[in-house]
C-alpha cells in the first residue's frame, strides 16, 4: 500500500530580489509529505530550508518571490494548489491545514497580548461559532498538553522562559488540529535537554493525533532519530532523498556523507569527525554544473559542466533519489558512497 500524500511540492523556485541579479534561493525543489509521516529536511545554514517553508505557505517576506512551481495540499475535497488560492481561501486554509512553529519562536509571541489571547484568536478566526468559554477551555487543554500549567494563559510572553514560549508555540500550532505541522529548527535556541523534551512531546502528540510533520534542522543525527524520510538540501536544491535509516547507514551523495560526518553519531560506533571543507556557494553567482563540485572530494571534470538532476541511485534502490553524476550509468562509486 502506498501512503497517501498530504503535501506535494513540485519544482518550487524562489528568488530574492527582482533586479538584474536576484538570489536564486530555491531552484526546482520537489518534495512529498505523506500522511502520518515525519519528513526531515537537513542542510547547512543558508541552504534555503526556511525559504522553503515560507514559500510553501505563501508567507515569503519581500523581496522574496516565488518564480515557479506548485504546492499541492491534499485536503478532504481533493488536492488544491496553495500558490493559486485566493487570499480569502488562503486565510481560511491556514493553520487548519498547515501550522508552523517558526525558527524565531523566541519572538513568535506578540509581547503585548496574554498567552491565552494568542492561543484563542486563531480558534476564534476559524471557528466563529465557538463560545469564549469553549476557546478558553481549549487553550487550557493545549497548554496542559505541552506540559505548561493551564493558569499560564494569563501570563504575558515575557513572563515565560524560552522553553516555555517554545512549547506555547507548539500548543498554538496544535490549536486547530492541523493536518501538517512544520517545525523550522524549533529548538536551536534551547539547551540539549530541552530540545529532546520538546521533540519527544511533539512526537508523542503525533502518535496520538496522527498529523504529518516536516521537521527542519541542521542537526542530522537528531533528524535521523525522529524522521521517517529525509531530504538533504544544498544551496537551494535537494541533493538526496531517502528513508532516514538508509541515509544514516549509506549516504549516496558526497554532501550527505560529509554532513553526516560533521556530527558525532548518537548511537553506534564512533566515527572520525570530518567537516566539509570550504563554504556554501554564493547563490547570486553559482558555479556552473553541480553547485557542490568546488567542495566535493569526489568531483570529476564533468561535474563543473553538467548540472545533475535528482534521479535514481546507481543501485536503483526503491524510494531513494540522489542528484549526483557519480550515479550515472557506467561510473563506479567511491567506496564511501557504495557500502
Amino acid at each position: 500500500m502506498t501512503p497517501e500524500p498530504v503535501l506535494e511540492i513540485r519544482d518550487l523556485a524562489v528568488d530574492y530580489g527582482y533586479g538584474a541579479s536576484p538570489v536564486h534561493a530555491l531552484r526546482g525543489v520537489s518534495l512529498t509529505l505523506h500522511k502520518g509521516e515525519v519528513l526531515g529536511i537537513a542542510g547547512e545554514s543558508g541552504c534555503g530550508k526556511s525559504t522553503l517553508v515560507y514559500a510553501a505557505t505563501r508567507l515569503l517576506p519581500p523581496p522574496g518571490v516565488i518564480v515557479g512551481g506548485e504546492v499541492r495540499f491534499h485536503g478532504d475535497d481533493g488536492p488544491v494548489d496553495i500558490l493559486r488560492m485566493t487570499d480569502q481561501e488562503l486565510r481560511a486554509a491556514r493553520w487548519q491545514d498547515t501550522a508552523i512553529v517558526f525558527q524565531g519562536a523566541m519572538n513568535s509571541l506578540n509581547p503585548v497580548y496574554r498567552v491565552g489571547r494568542q492561543l484563542t484568536d486563531a480558534i476564534a478566526a476559524h471557528r466563529p461559532g465557538s463560545s469564549r468559554a469553549e476557546r478558553e477551555e481549549r487553550a487550557r487543554e493545549l497548554l496542559t498538553m505541552v506540559g505548561i500549567a493551564p493558569e499560564r494563559i494569563r501570563a504575558f510572553p515575557h513572563q515565560l522562559s524560552g522553553g516555555m514560549r517554545q512549547r506555547v508555540m507548539i500548543a498554538m500550532a496544535m490549536a486547530l488540529e492541523p493536518k501538517v505541522l512544520i517545525l523550522d529548527e524549533p529548538t536551536t535556541a534551547l539547551d540539549v535537554v530541552m530540545q529532546r523534551q520538546i521533540l519527544e512531546q511533539v512526537m508523542e502528540l503525533r502518535d496520538r493525533l496522527g498529523f504529518s510533520v516536516v521537521f527542519i534542522t541542521h542537526d542530522v543525527s537528531l533528524l535521523i532519530e525522529v524522521a521517517d524520510h529525509i531530504a538533504i538540501m544544498y544551496a537551494g536544491e535537494i541533493v538526496e532523498q531517502a528513508r532516514a535509516s538508509e541515509v544514516y547507514r549509506q549516504p549516496r551523495h558526497p554532501y550527505s556523507h560529509g554532513l553526516l560526518h560533521s556530527f558525532p553519531p548518537l548511537h553506534g560506533p564512533r566515527r572520525p569527525l570530518a567537516g566539509i571543507p570550504g563554504s556554501p556557494p554564493d547563490l547570486q553567482a553559482l558555479p556552473s554544473g553541480c553547485p557542490f563540485s568546488p567542495r566535493c572530494p569526489e568531483a570529476m571534470d564533468v561535474c563543473t559542466d553538467v548540472h545533475p538532476d535528482l534521479g535514481p541511485t546507481a543501485a536503483a534502490e526503491p524510494g531513494r533519489r540522489v542528484a549526483c553524476l557519480l550515479h550515472t550509468e557506467g561510473r563506479t562509486l567511491p567506496a564511501s558512497l557504495s557500502v
Binding site: 517558526f102 509571541l109 486563531a122
Partner: peptide
C-alpha cells in the same frame, strides 16, 4: 517583519 506578525499571518487571522 517581526516573527509574531508572520505567525499572526500564518494563523490565518483576518
Amino acid at each position: 517583519s517581526e516573527d509574531y506578525v508572520t505567525v499572526a499571518q500564518a494563523k490565518g487571522l483576518p
